[in-house]
């Protein structure tokens, strides 16, 4: 139900309870193919050489920092596991290659652009939005800075500008939406010299990923991370070891916002439950008032 979330109130006014129930179900499971036309990126960690050019490309594309390319050759950053921060939407980390500990695998981290983004579902004002093309974007002018999106994100991606006193923003990869709209590749993909990042339609990427697995079974485990995780994501990964051994979290295939949305929609089904409660209480008030009046006559 990615994009029709905000139609909730319209649906409510339409007053069809069953419609709502169906709506939630459809969003729940198996609907992955509906996202085939979304844009996505396949990150092949078996090819990635850890050059960090994607970090550079991202910072250029988003005007985050203007460092010289050579600065990204510094391998010492790999000593610590890094996370995306306000002025760095993507970082490359390492994870161990079992047969060759000296040369680790590399893993690029950024927003996954979930098919059913928990951050979007959580956002109180709709500052985060799932675009039809796939990206999850952020509008700082709507945002009130409650940070519920950060609580909600199962990949712990959004970062916050805590040091900013007046206009702090939630910061995360926005999938270079402006470039995407114009048919261009995102900054990081453009910068990758090794084709470790493949940009394309999610459906095509899945096909590509499974083909690579079939053709090189010794090189990859048979798992496309992001195909089902959290209901599917636009960014997906291939790896040579089980994903449990990487920093990517183990996440089931259920869309994260599923339960909260069913509860919300259940409570507000056409506003019937609140109104029913109101009616019930009004009735109680009336009944007890009469009783009291009868009693009151003898009492006071």
């Amino acid at each position: 139900m990615g994009l029709d979330r905000r139609d909730f109130f319209k649906i409510v006014t339409a007053g069809s309870a069953s419609m709502l129930a169906g709506e939630v179900k459809a969003g729940a499971n198996g609907g992955n193919h509906r996202f085939s036309d979304n844009f996505g990126v396949l990150v092949d960690t078996a090819i990635c050489i850890g050059c960090r050019k994607c970090e550079w490309g991202c910072e250029q594309a988003n005007s985050l920092a203007f460092r010289d390319k050579s600065e990204y050759e510094d391998k010492s950053v790999f000593e610590n596991q890094r996370r995306p921060v306000p002025d760095k939407y993507t970082v490359v980390n390492t994870f161990e290659k079992p047969l060759d500990p000296a040369n680790p695998y590399y893993l690029k981290v950024q927003c996954m652009h979930c098919n059913h983004p928990a951050c979007v579902s959580a956002c109180i004002v709709g500052a985060l939005e799932k675009k039809t093309e796939g990206p999850v974007t952020y509008d700082p002018w709507k945002c009130m800075g409650c940070r519920y999106c950060m609580v909600a994100c199962p990949f712990q991606v959004p970062a916050y500008e805590y040091a900013e006193p007046l206009t702090p923003q939630v910061r995360k990869c926005g999938f270079c939406y402006d470039k995407l709209k114009d048919g261009k590749k995102p900054g990081c993909v453009e910068a990758c010299p090794n084709e470790a990042l493949t940009f394309g339609k999610r459906g095509d990427l899945l096909e590509l990923a499974h083909n690579r697995i079939i053709q090189n079974p010794e090189k990859y485990v048979s798992h496309v991370y992001g195909e089902y995780e959290a209901g599917g994501t636009s960014w997906m990964y291939l790896a040579g070891v089980e994903f449990e051994k990487t920093e990517l979290p183990v996440i089931g295939s259920e869309p994260i916002p599923e339960i909260t949305e069913s509860i919300q929609h259940g409570i507000f089904k056409a506003f019937v439950p609140p109104l029913a409660l109101y009616g019930l209480l009004a009735l109680a008030m009336h009944t007890f008032r009469e009783k009291q009046a009868e009693k009151g006559d003898n009492h006071e």
């Binding site: 979330r5 109130f9 109180i124 004002v125 709507k142 409650c146 909260t260």
Partner: peptide, 10 residues
């Protein structure tokens, strides 16, 4: 800016 899916909104 209404966001009916958001628990926080409610």
């Amino acid at each position: 800016m209404w966001q009916g899916n958001s628990v926080l909104f409610e």
